[in-house]
Design a protein around this nucleic acid. Structure first.
Lengths: 215, 215, 215, 215
DNA sequence: CATGAATGAGACTTCATTCAT
DNA sequence: CATGAATGAAGTCTCATTCAT
């Protein structure tokens, strides 16, 4: 469906880096071209416009993310394990590909209203996957159904997203000061190990969802 | 410290509406001037630049939000009540002033990297308030300290933020189709009563944090 | 109907000169701005686009021409005199305002198909005036009605237009060689007195080529 | 002198169609390549530049036209018959090859100043042929020499050209509305039988508008 | 204080032309 | 001969900001 070519991919990769560094509106097409090592006009052989480039980048990265999360969930059996797998997979991706994460978490939600709705739609897949896991746990009686599954999914997603944002911004701040970004926890929550955060999310979410044995 | 005048406030209000509708980068200074009923140049008598206008708007609205939340928390006694008060106050504000909420939730985080960090810093106040409540509950033994308070605060904030975002975008979508936006719940989570959502957050969070009576 | 201001007029005058010299497509907006002594952006305060500038220029000049021709015709009594007045007025205008004439005769018919039709429509007024004169002469029995008035008008217009074109191009050619353009007749018809040409048109149109047997 | 090859001709034919449809400046080289069924670069194997393509097209078509007109004139004996033959041949060509005519009549005179002079020069051949016919008639005493032959030729050419233009534009307008273009006369002169127009030109040129008192 | 016409730097995008395959 | 992907110069237009009134 989406045409692939090495040059197209190089441009997407370059756009990812430039958008992550400068932001969508501030990034110039010429910057992306230079980063990709192509001429300005070449970009327009593969993308209709700067907006189209952003959308294509979004599609491309969301496909990856959704595939990754779906695979993680599929590899687990119980709802609790599926939920943990989801959370860990997402957090792991953030840690492994922070540039991609930054674009997904921050830049891709900028641009226009159109983009905002568009992205909302695309995140839908991810949210439905998560909601499915929760509904399954609720149906099995393991988890309380006090919170409707779709909204629970959204809230969990919000936790992950916020943690990702905090970590990415803290990372940026460090990077800008010229240091390597060594993930660490400080009391301001500005720098911390994103991977450990997966357990916190797990703790907060599972215990909240679990039906009490007694009471 | 910040100078006040009726015209300055009119400009801030206009900027809030225009940023909410068009987004920061897409909004033109001339649009804001027209919305405020002043000449283009007048804006520069009160603000140094478009960026300064955004930052000033952010300051102004965050002051309100922080004051509101602090008051809500101060009005409650136990950590649990304080947490609920926090959540309800925030959610109530979203419902009452959706335009302001849209700017805070969506637009103010766009713009530049500078702004992003700046806003992160300002959200700090809000996060510290929330973290304080949680730390208090953990100290009293009522809540588990499995999750460090600052990160728990961030996660809770993420839930609220995501719910706000979902509600605001769903609201936009409805408004665009020409209907009044009557808050309602649908299974896609696209439209729902944001006020009820406060209880979901409460349920998910408090039960997750509470130490088990028996195990 | 059309807004007027000294600056707008200065831009129109500059555009006239630049279009006449470089041609519509070759002329750069920056050239016109420089010629008018304004900044590039200023042009867009008065005209929506380069196309709009061309169309506005066309409107402006055609108004002048149509008014001039209508006045000339109104000042004469018999159809023959009206026809001569029309021809002389047009030819006189060419001689007096060659730059304006060049734009009308040459440049304004370029640009897009849209413009071509648009201009066809605007020349309609001129053609109807002329056709009216001819129809009047035919109705009075003075002139033969072998050729339908509208088409006779078109043919006469074609003569005038071609003469204007030939004269203007000959003028250009001279001007380019750095000489003053002294109107003169050469055997190639490349340079000649455009004012005398009015009589030729008069002679050809009223009497044709055939030598009269009598009179 | 000019190299010939089937591919070169296919490109010229394609250029004719594309220029007629889009205009010289608006037409893209890529459009012409696609229309000709060749690669973009192939065009540059046969023509030095887009300008050269236009000039070559002009040369090619003018050769045809001049040959056609010369043949028509050569086939007649008296000046009057030669003149009528010239007019009829030209008008017939318009009717038979409207696309070629459109390019000659409209597009080829656009482009640059250079082209305009160039074309003026090339039309010279056609004009000299016509002027020769008129001079012959004047020399024989059949026609008045009130109008110098070269200018009479130009005026006659102007009539033909204007009729051609009117007919071609009317044709376009019809075609654009999705109908077949059936040549017809309407009182606005917008659509009419171009072939009949030849007689009008003949009548106007030889006899003028004045009704003959005696024969 | 207020105005709003004017500025001009700079961005996106197009497209004639080239050249390695 | 032919291809068509790549180039990059150049043009139109936007819009934050200024300043004379």
């Amino acid at each position: 469906m989406t045409p692939h070519s090495p040059k197209r991919d190089r441009i997407l990769d370059a756009a990812e880096r430039v958008f992550a560094q400068r932001g969508f509106f501030t990034a110039k097409v010429a910057d992306i071209a230079k980063e990709a090592g192509v001429a300005d006009g070449t970009i327009y052989l593969y993308f209709k416009s700067k907006d189209d480039l952003l959308i294509s980048l979004f599609e491309s990265r969301m496909e990856r993310v959704n595939a990754l999360l779906a695979a993680a969930v599929a590899g687990a059996t119980t709802p609790r394990e599926k939920l943990l797998a989801f959370v860990r997979a997402y957090v792991g991706m953030i840690a492994d590909q922070p540039t991609a994460a930054e674009v997904l978490t921050i830049e891709l939600r900028q641009s226009t209203k159109f983009m905002r709705e568009y992205s909302a739609q695309r995140f839908g897949e991810l949210l439905r996957l998560l909601a499915g896991v929760i509904a399954e746990g609720q149906a099995s009686g393991e988890w309380s159904d006090a919170v409707p599954a779709p909204h629970a999914a959204r809230m969990i997603w919000g936790m992950l997203d916020e943690l990702a944002l905090a970590w990415l911004l803290g990372r940026d701040a460090g990077a800008r000061r010229g240091r390597k970004p060594p993930p660490s926890v400080d009391d301001d929550g500005r720098k911390f190990d994103i991977v450990r955060a997966a357990d916190w999310v797990g703790a907060l979410v599972t215990q909240g969802l679990e039906r009490r044995s007694h009471v």
